[in-house]
Design a protein around this nucleic acid. Structure first.
Lengths: 365, 365
DNA sequence: TTGTAAGCGTTATCAT
DNA sequence: ATGATAACGCTTACAA
């Protein structure tokens, strides 16, 4: 891989882009700005200015240089640029799990927004938990990159590891309710969302409702809060609420929860069941089908998320989390920080989702 | 953002990591290796060697330096490193659409594999098609980064734009059947997959089958091939096959296809329908439900993909594409190229998926 | 085992 | 409008 150190490379001869690209040895073509400058009979400073595109330069010169660039197939070395500039318009994204549809959508959305802000997005996906116990290695990579700002989209990272850096690098935590006084956050309003969908269940005349509430656990924090708020609202609305615990991941049989729900339904104890995440709702739907339970005839069911692919096809009644807004606000706040020259006022924003009607929620029969 | 150029920064005083991190003006803390060296009373060369971890150094020296690093909160500047080294162990990933479950899983898998190979993954998601008509801007970014290799996971890019570079930078095209003689590819064997699931349909006694075959179109290339192979195999197996065209995206009503299928089913013309992608199967399931068609009682249905979240919950009969293997082989080939000092023999690999039984496929009644 | 110093490819200051 | 040239922060011969 490594080109022979300090060995002069013929450049301008075996060119990368245009012609047949004779292989200039292993490694990179390494056409440098100096090559372009020589080719165009100008100084590197001029080439640099033209690439920059802001300083005025004679039209004739520009043409010469552009031509030389095309002929040589020059590609700017971004490492050298960053080193010389000392700053970067790249936003680093620390992403939890790209295979999770929620993070996938968020990733796509952030990508779009950064492009619109004429910035670049550098994504570092955290390795699976069992490979790297904490996510600070990803953070470290971003810091080594000297990105201009950091977007943290992972519930797993301990916010405290961010603290030492937030004073010197723009940072925004996304989707994790974290009210630390020096961390910018944009998150979902779990209370509003929980109330929103609970109100829908009430509006459909359900008076006996099961709510699935994961135990308090770092991984399940968000779902725990959702479930708690749902139950709270239902009770306030006069409903008779049965909460069902979900033990922490891996600690027990995941089907236990669904078995419990199905039993409650059969015994006519509830006419609706609320899940704090669409995936759980989906699992229930499957279990219910195998148990010959009809939905929503025998029981109504709701979830939260609204990001599963094909969700509208499945007809899940759920709350759609506003990922687009999350991405937009996150980027606005990051870029405000990046263009300010001091710290800016810390923001903690909460986003409310929208109810998505679905076939799984019907009037109590 | 930009720190005052050439202005001496106090370092060693307002340190980033450990203490309260007094803000050293806008921009970065900028503790450099020189600071660490001074602090530890050694030369920068020694610090560099210790960071490198391969050259032997005296234990006492190492301790001193490590301590200085911790005290100053030094974080290595990766741009300077790359510039000085001239090579990189970062693999660039050009990713089509992170919100697509298939690409999401692939992304996650590649992330895992690169970590295992002790390399880094730099992901560039292509902006939506309507924002950037071609994906070469992402490619350009990767090239400017001087990544050590490029993984292309996007059907949209024209392989010809890669050609000028493949001679000088390790490249592998993932998931797109592209038999260009100078492009390494790892793709799915659409023929084998099509045959595989067609055989299952035959094995369930279906003799009158509808196959949904998208027209030939860059975006639908893969699905087109799958459908064609399915139909071919069914016919070879003696089945009576009705193919149903899917027009290119956006050119017409997407529900037309499902309406046609439903009509065929009602008229008892077919007992099974095969889709070239799970998303289409899902859409059909939804349409069928609304049309009061029971699945699989009235008609069996199959898809291809196996990556939708919660797919096992939905009970789709499909072919699971071996994304893990795709990622693994892609990385093995890239890293073989990166560690070879010349070009290596071009590989075109095809991967066969596995049949996933599901409730949507049953014996003909 | 450690230090010295010459690059790496850009950018930006200061002249011209 | 353009050209020298000194940084930028690190790695790595080469010396000691």
């Amino acid at each position: 891989m490594t080109p022979p150190k300090h060995a002069p490379l013929e450049t301008g001869a075996g060119l990368p882009a245009p012609s047949g690209a004779a292989r200039p040895g292993p490694g990179w073509p390494t056409v440098t700005m100096a090559d372009v400058a020589r080719e165009a009979q100008v100084s590197t400073a001029t080439v640099s200015r033209i690439l920059d595109g802001v300083v005025p330069v004679a039209e004739a010169t520009r043409a010469k240089v552009l031509d030389a660039i095309a002929r040589t197939g020059y590609i700017r070395n971004e490492a050298a640029t960053r080193l010389a500039r000392g700053s970067s318009d790249t936003v680093g994204l620390l992403l939890r799990d790209p295979s999770n549809p929620y993070y996938g959508r968020l990733h796509a959305e952030l990508q779009l927004r950064t492009a619109q802000h004429r910035m670049q997005l550098l994504t570092v996906a955290s390795p699976p938990v069992h490979v790297a116990p904490n996510e600070s290695s990803g953070l470290r990579r971003l810091l080594e990159h000297r990105v201009g700002g950091i977007l943290v989209a992972t519930g797993l990272i301990d916010p405290h590891v961010l603290l030492p850096f937030v004073a010197s690098i723009p940072t925004v935590v996304l989707g994790r309710p974290e009210d630390h006084p020096s961390l910018h956050t944009v998150a979902h309003d779990e209370q509003a969302n929980g109330y929103l969908i609970a109100d829908q269940v009430l509006a459909h005349d359900h008076a006996d409702v099961a709510v699935v509430v994961p135990v308090h656990h770092p991984d399940l924090l968000v779902e725990h809060r959702r479930g708690t708020f749902m139950a709270e609202r239902l009770r306030a609305g006069g409903a008779n609420v049965t909460t069902i615990d979900v033990p922490p991941p891996r600690s027990s049989d995941p089907d236990m929860v669904n078995a419990t729900v199905i039993d409650l339904v059969r015994r006519r104890k509830v006419t609706a069941v609320m899940f704090p995440a669409d995936m759980r709702l989906l699992a229930f739907l499957s279990a219910a089908q195998q148990a010959q339970l009809r939905i929503p005839d025998d029981v109504s069911a709701t979830g939260v998320d609204g990001v599963l692919t094909g969700i509208e096809l499945l007809g899940l009644a759920t709350v759609r989390l506003p990922i687009e807004t999350l991405a937009r606000r996150g980027l606005e706040i990051i870029s405000a920080q990046m263009s300010a020259n001091g710290p800016i006022e810390i923001r903690h924003e909460s986003l409310t989702g929208t109810f998505m009607p679905g076939r799984t929620l019907a009037l109590r029969s």
